[in-house]
């Protein structure tokens, strides 16, 4: 139990995917102009990351390891993620139309979100068991959501400011992200 708690806290705050591991920067910059779209994106990513952590665990330890094909893991994982995103999209369209309309446009983008492939590869690297893999997938996605929502809040304010022309938009957004990352550095080296 203590180990699981440690995984959760460190994935959300200490090793935050955006601010310390740099995974998932594209959607972080792309869809963080409004807090509500950021939140929808966060939910979609959380869903895909949790499910793909579980599925890739079985693919890796059930298929790749027994056949000694671990070097194919990148290909296998990206295909699994792409297929999974498609499946989820089709399933949602049928089963939860309102949710699909809210998340629809973000779903295809998730395939090339490096946070998803990243978390599946990290699960293998950290040698997590099944439960811990799923917990880590879920917790780091929550960290991602937290980061993207905080950042969207900041960016909404930025639109009201009047920076030099060259800094408008992405450069200023990056610098603000740097300042938030500095705040997150305060969590590093925390002891339990």
């Amino acid at each position: 139990m203590k180990e699981m708690l440690l995984i959760i806290v460190s994935a959300i705050l200490i090793d935050n995917f955006i601010f310390s591991k740099f995974l998932g920067i594209c959607p972080f910059l792309g869809v963080s102009e409004k807090t509500d779209t950021a939140l929808s994106m966060g939910f979609a990513v959380t869903f895909v990351m949790t499910v793909s952590s579980a599925v890739t665990y079985f693919i890796y330890y059930g298929v790749l390891v027994p056949f000694n094909l671990t070097y194919l893991k990148t290909i296998a994982f990206i295909l699994v993620i792409a297929a999974l995103v498609q499946l989820i999209e089709m399933f949602m369209k049928k089963a939860f139309p309102p949710l699909y309309q809210a998340l629809g446009i973000y779903l295809p983008l998730i395939t090339t979100n490096c946070a998803v492939l990243g978390v599946t590869l990290l699960n293998i690297q950290y040698e997590y068991n099944f439960i811990n893999s799923v917990v880590y997938g879920f917790a780091s996605a929550v960290g991602f959501t937290l980061a993207i929502v905080i950042f969207a809040g900041v960016r909404q304010r930025l639109q009201l400011s009047d920076p030099p022309k060259a800094f408008r938009g992405i450069p200023l957004a990056l610098i603000s992200a740097g300042l938030i990352a500095m705040a997150f550095m305060g969590f590093q080296g925390m002891e339990f």
């Binding site: 060259a166 992405i170 200023l172 990056l174 550095m185």
Partner: peptide, 25 residues
Amino acid sequence: TLIAMPAGAFITLGIIIATTRYFVN
């Protein structure tokens, strides 16, 4: 050391993008 850490990465890249934009414009 801050510049070599994650926070510095964001800030440096932001400044470089702004500089490029300035000259391209």
